[in-house]
């Protein structure tokens, strides 16, 4: 177990390093940051001055090295647009996004797992079809459009919720519904598949033959084993949800990292963009790492492989 954990952690670090190199390179090569920063009326001298000031005149590997050594010490640079240290911005905004992510995950699990179990209990019946149709429809719905529709519903027709902002819990209701719905289909499908596989095994037949109550068989014997693959996908989904939060937070003006990402992209704030991409990548690596370790702990077959 320890060796497995260490190996997995090392891989995570390596991946994080590669992603940071790729992101840095891609963002710096996509445009000339000095020209963008200088604005439209800038002369050639101004641009040259900015290049020297911000270090854009040095070769890219050198720039990356400087950025990395500073980043490892917690200094992610200063935001061009906001004029404050990027790390401070991230610290301010992260709690909102984490709240949104965790609540959405709970919301998704609360509906997706029971629906998946229900569908697996009666496979290929109308109940199963309804659940699958719901999953397919939820998958096809553009999340930004769903968000706008919720605004029309809850702010115009039934004025119950505030349109935008992030001050009270009411502000989180609609974003949580949107992000949660986005994550639901994958979790539901996997719960259903896992349950179907487990329900066909010998030990479930034994448990039933012993005369255990159907409920005990279903919840204690079947579900416990069926959720193992679900945990892995929840780890991945959690990462996707954070990435997708840029759209949802922009619609609802929820003041989190996603909105920060949008603002930094709109205003060409390179330092901020890099930091957000790196942060989300680290969060993704951490959640998948946690899911893998949890999986290995639950299912010894995985560690040995």
């Amino acid at each position: 177990m320890l060796i497995y954990t260490l190996k997995r952690a090392l891989l995570g670090l390596l991946v994080a390093l590669t992603v940071s190199i790729l992101t840095f390179g891609l963002l710096h090569l996509s445009s000339d940051p000095a020209v963008t920063l200088a604005g439209e009326d800038a002369t050639e001298e101004d641009i040259q001055q900015i290049r020297v000031n911000y270090g854009f005149d040095k070769p890219l590997p050198v720039q990356y090295w400087v950025w990395l050594t500073k980043a490892l010490q917690g200094d992610l640079g200063t935001s061009f647009y906001f004029g404050v240290p990027v790390s401070q911005l991230l610290a301010e905004r992260l709690p909102v996004t984490l709240t949104l992510g965790i609540c959405s995950l709970f919301f998704a699990i609360m509906f997706a797992v029971p629906l998946g179990v229900l569908a697996a209990m009666r496979p290929n019946t109308w109940l199963d079809r309804v659940c699958l149709t719901l999953a397919v429809s939820a998958q096809a719905m553009p999340s930004f459009w769903f968000g706008l529709m919720l605004i029309v519903l809850f702010c115009l027709w039934f004025p119950l919720l505030p349109v935008s902002g992030s001050d009270t819990w009411q502000h989180f209701v609609m974003p949580v519904i949107v992000v949660g719905t986005y994550a639901m289909p994958a979790i539901m499908r996997l719960t259903r598949t896992g349950m179907l596989d487990v329900l066909a095994t010998d030990y479930i037949r034994t448990a039933r033959a012993k005369g255990l109550r159907p409920r005990t068989v279903l919840l204690k014997h079947a579900l416990r084993n069926a959720v193992i693959p679900v945990i892995a996908v929840i780890g991945v989904q959690a990462g996707y949800m954070l990435g997708g939060s840029v759209i949802v937070e922009t619609i609802f003006a929820l003041n989190g990292v996603g909105l920060l990402a949008y603002e930094s992209i709109i205003y060409f704030d390179l330092a901020c963009m890099e930091a957000v991409v790196l942060l989300l990548c680290l969060v993704f690596i951490t959640t998948t790492f946690a899911a893998d370790i949890l999986n290995a702990w639950l299912d010894p077959r995985i560690r040995i492989k």
Partner: peptide, 23 residues
Amino acid sequence: NYLITVRLSIPGVLLALAVVQLI
């Protein structure tokens, strides 16, 4: 496999937004 892991760890929507905006 390593390439796949790296790609999965990149927040795709975000990077796509950034690159499209910059170009």
